[in-house]
Amino acid sequence: MNLKRIALIASLMSFTCVTFAESFTWSVVPQFTSSAIHHDWTPILKELEKRTGHTFTLKIYETFNEFETDFLVGKSDFSYMNPYHILMAKQTQNYTPLIRDEKSQLTGILVSRRGSNIQTLSDLQNQKIAFAAPNAFAASLYMQALLKNKEHIDITPYYAGSHSNAYRQVLTGQTQAAGGVYRTLTKEPPEAQAALQVIYKTPSTAAHAIVVHPRVSAKIQIEIQQAILDLTQTKKGQNLLNAILIPKPVKASYQQDYQVLEQLNLTPIVYGQ
């Protein structure tokens, strides 16, 4: 840990020394398809570049696995991740949450095909359920923990790689149900939504946030933070924020918003499970 702390301080220091145009990497969790993520995030980053003068390079990942691997070694300067990832990132690299949406909460859902014989949770006993990724926080991690510990439903998880694919697994009958979140479900085409029904949901938690690596100088952090917050001023900025699902950005705090999740004792599914 010391080594890490030293590195962090060092990078912080290096950052505070220089405050003119810099380039930063920005990764986004593959909650959606790469193209969707690219589509949603590129405009706002461009706007931030304009406003701050810095350059941001968007990093997109196909799988959760890849995404996690990278942030665990602190590859990106900025990142947008789910709450569990925030825990992991804090613990490993000390990424700190910068911005989160004021209102939105994450609620994990279980969906089955409308009209199928999976109507209640009990119907899912020993069934195959598709999840986007093991560590998709609300959709997978929290959901599976609840199913196992609280609901005592044994299931066979299938990791589809993305929410979209997870839904399609159930839609095409490959699995009986899929775990997701509302925000991803609502992004599905109406036919898909019409063909699915929610049969279970988790308690809501705090949603995704933009986190920053400590190597980024505090000055810049604040700069970026402020820039994002300023986006609400304009309609264009607002739209940009809507696209990344942070319609009402507020300053995020680890202690206030996410620390509590530590108590859930969520174990990563991704390793060795």
Binding site: T33, A160, G161, S164, N165, Y167, R168, L171
Partner: peptide
Amino acid sequence: ISNKLDNLEN
């Protein structure tokens, strides 16, 4: 092959 039905749909 990779069972990426969302990609298939796209």
